[in-house]
Amino acid sequence: MEEVQNGKGYIGFAFRQSVPVMLGYIFLGIAFGLLLQDAGYSFVWAFFISVIVYAGSMQFIMVSLMTGGAGLLYTAVMTFFINGRHIFYGLSFVEKYKKMGKACPYMVFSLTDETYSVLCGTKVPEGMKEDKVFFWISLFDHSYWVAGSVLGAVAGSYITIDTTGIDFSMTALFLVIVVEQWQEQRSHFAAITGAICGIIWLLLLGPDRFILPALCSCVVILLAVRGSVAGRTTKQKEEVAG
């Protein structure tokens, strides 16, 4: 408890929660920094972009937009297309983040795929404030991304170990969260809906365009079953159904 009160406990706990993201973000960041360096942009750009844009796959695409001199409208459309799924993360955190006051804008800004999943999987220990834990996890994740990008841009070409396949750590992280959610929830309707919608839309539209329709159909289906048994999970659901 003492540890919790002096704030150190928060940082330590948040750090442990963020470790799964660390590997993935640092190596993905390095890959981005390298790509940017190859395109002729220095590490200052890498730092700046990773601080203010902070969006994994979009940053990779952005490099090709920058070198190709893409139009700004085209850039905007691409961004909405690729990052559109982030709307759904906020949608499930509206209530939580609203209460966070000054930290709220940063929390909203830093809500990436990986941070979202870690926050979903974090069980805050007794005696700790969820707000603070969430804030530190978000900040750690962001700093890994920035550190990786700068490292890649500065020293990426000296890295000689073969890191092919390290990006699987993200898939593994998502799988772990799915397992944990599955074990916690009485109804598996939402998870199964997600898997089925994902697969159906993937087969229909292919790998590049399926995610937004898949997420939209999940929302529609979940709203349609609201109040029925299938719509209930374990905690705090009683009030919701009413």
Binding site: F88, Y89, L91, Q181, W182, V240
Partner: peptide, 27 residues
């Protein structure tokens, strides 16, 4: 916060994570 949004806040994460796994395996 509207009831529907609170409800989605409770159930949607499980769907999203499942879709993200499909997303990772998309290729």
């Amino acid at each position: 916060v509207p009831g529907a949004v609170r409800y989605l806040g409770a159930v949607l994460p499980a769907s999203i994570m499942a879709v993200l796994v499909v997303y990772c395996m998309r290729n």
